[in-house]
C-alpha cells in the first residue's frame, strides 16, 4: 500500500523536475549560441534571435529535414506530391501544402502560417533558391519576403547536399545521434557499392531517359548523383555533345540511339517503366546491346536528398553491379 501511494508523489516530483529543466534550458542556450545562425548554400551566414520553429520548405528539403526530426509547418512542391518519385515514403500528414506546381506558391497561405524560416535548395547556376528561380511567377516569389530563405547548395555531390541539410537540422535543434546513425548506415552501403564497382573495373554505364521520339542521354556534369557514382568508381559515360541550350542532356534521335554502347543502361527513375517501354518499342532497341541483354536498371534522377534514400539506392545498385557483365561491350 505504501509503495502504491508513493507512485503519484514520484510522478509529481518528476513533473516538477521536468518543468524545471524546460524553463531553464532556453536560458542556458541563449548565451551560448547567440540564438541561431546557419551558413547557407549561398555562402552567407543567417542569424536570428530565436531558433526558427515555423518552417516552410520546398518538399525535397522538407523530406530531408523531417528525416532528421525537424517538421515544417508548410511545404511547396514542383508537382503532384503523391506521384513524385523523390517524395515516396515521406509523411506530410499535418503539414500544409502551399504549392503543387513548379513556380506556383500560394503566398497568402504561406503568410497565414507565419513562417520564421523558408528552406529550399540553393542553385548556384541560377543564383536562387528553389521557389525563387527565374521563371517562377512574381506573386510566388513574394514568399521570400516572409522570412529568411536558406538551404543547402546543389553542387557536385548529393552527399554534400545532405550534409548541408544535416548542419541546418542541427542548428534547428535536431538530435545529432539520429543524423549520425543515418550517416553510418549510408557509409556502410557506400563501402559495399565501392567494393562491387572495384571488382568490375571495365563496367560502363549510360544514364538515359527515352521519351516520345528522343533518346536523351544524361550529362553527369549536371547530375550530382551521377558525379557521385563516377567519383566512387563507376564509369558513367560522359556524352560528347550535350544539347547547346540545355546541357543536362544529349538528345539523340532513335536512329542514332546506338551511338553509345555501354555494358549497362540506367533509366531515369522518374518516368520508369514507361521510358523503358518507349525504348523497347523502337526497332533499334535490339541493336543496343545492354537493352537486348536485359542489362538495365534505374538511377535516382535529380531528386535525392536523404541518407536513407541514398543508402537504399546504393544497395540496389550494388546488387545490380554484382550481377552485371562488365564485358558485354568492348
Amino acid at each position: 500500500m505504501r509503495a502504491l501511494r508513493l507512485v503519484p508523489i514520484a510522478l509529481a516530483a518528476g513533473v516538477a523536475l521536468l518543468a524545471g529543466c524546460a524553463s531553464t534550458a532556453p536560458e542556458e542556450a541563449a548565451p551560448e549560441g547567440g540564438a541561431w545562425s546557419y551558413t547557407s548554400g549561398d555562402g552567407k551566414t543567417y542569424t536570428a534571435d530565436e531558433v526558427p520553429t515555423r518552417i516552410i520548405a520546398h518538399a525535397y528539403a522538407a523530406k530531408v529535414l523531417m528525416e532528421f526530426g525537424i517538421v515544417p509547418v508548410g511545404i511547396y512542391a514542383d508537382g503532384d506530391i503523391e506521384s513524385d518519385v523523390g517524395l515516396q515514403g515521406a509523411d506530410f500528414e499535418g503539414v500544409e501544402v502551399i504549392g503543387e506546381e513548379w513556380g506556383k506558391i500560394d503566398v497568402e497561405k504561406a503568410a497565414a502560417l507565419a513562417p520564421d524560416l523558408i528552406v529550399g535548395d540553393w542553385w548556384p547556376a541560377e543564383d536562387a533558391y528553389s521557389g525563387l528561380e527565374g521563371g517562377v511567377e512574381e506573386s510566388s516569389k513574394k514568399i521570400g519576403e516572409l522570412a529568411p530563405v536558406v538551404g543547402a547548395a546543389q553542387g557536385d555531390s548529393i552527399v554534400e547536399l545532405i550534409e548541408g541539410y544535416a548542419e541546418l537540422a542541427e542548428s534547428l535543434g535536431a538530435d545529432t545521434s539520429v543524423i549520425e546513425a543515418q550517416r553510418a548506415d549510408f557509409d556502410a552501403a557506400l563501402e559495399e557499392f565501392k567494393t562491387a564497382v572495384a571488382a568490375k573495373p571495365d563496367l560502363t554505364a549510360l544514364a538515359i531517359s527515352p521519351y516520345e521520339d528522343t533518346y536523351a542521354v544524361a550529362v553527369p556534369e549536371y547530375a550530382p548523383e551521377l558525379l557521385d557514382l563516377q567519383s566512387w568508381g563507376l564509369d558513367v559515360i560522359d556524352p560528347t555533345t550535350p544539347d547547346p541550350e540545355f546541357p543536362y542532356w544529349e538528345s539523340l534521335s532513335f536512329e542514332n540511339a546506338d551511338t553509345y554502347q555501354p555494358d549497362v543502361l540506367l533509366f531515369d527513375d522518374r518516368s520508369y517503366p514507361a521510358n523503358e517501354e518507349t525504348l523497347a518499342a523502337q526497332p533499334i532497341a535490339k541493336d543496343i546491346a545492354a537493352h537486348a541483354a536485359g542489362a538495365y536498371t534505374t538511377w535516382p534522377a535529380y531528386w535525392l536528398h536523404t541518407y536513407p534514400d541514398y543508402a537504399e539506392q546504393l544497395r540496389d545498385l550494388t546488387k545490380f553491379v554484382n550481377g552485371a557483365d562488365e564485358n558485354l561491350t568492348d
Binding site: 534521335s253 532513335f254 536512329e255 542514332n256 546506338d258 526497332p283 533499334i284 535490339k286 541493336d287
Partner: peptide, 20 residues
C-alpha cells in the same frame, strides 16, 4: 538524322533502314 554509308552497312544501319 543518321548518316548511312551504303558502301559499309553495319547491322544497325540495316535495322534503321528496314525497320524504321
Amino acid at each position: 538524322s543518321r548518316t548511312i554509308n551504303l558502301a559499309a552497312l553495319a547491322q544497325t544501319d540495316l535495322t534503321v533502314i528496314l525497320d524504321m
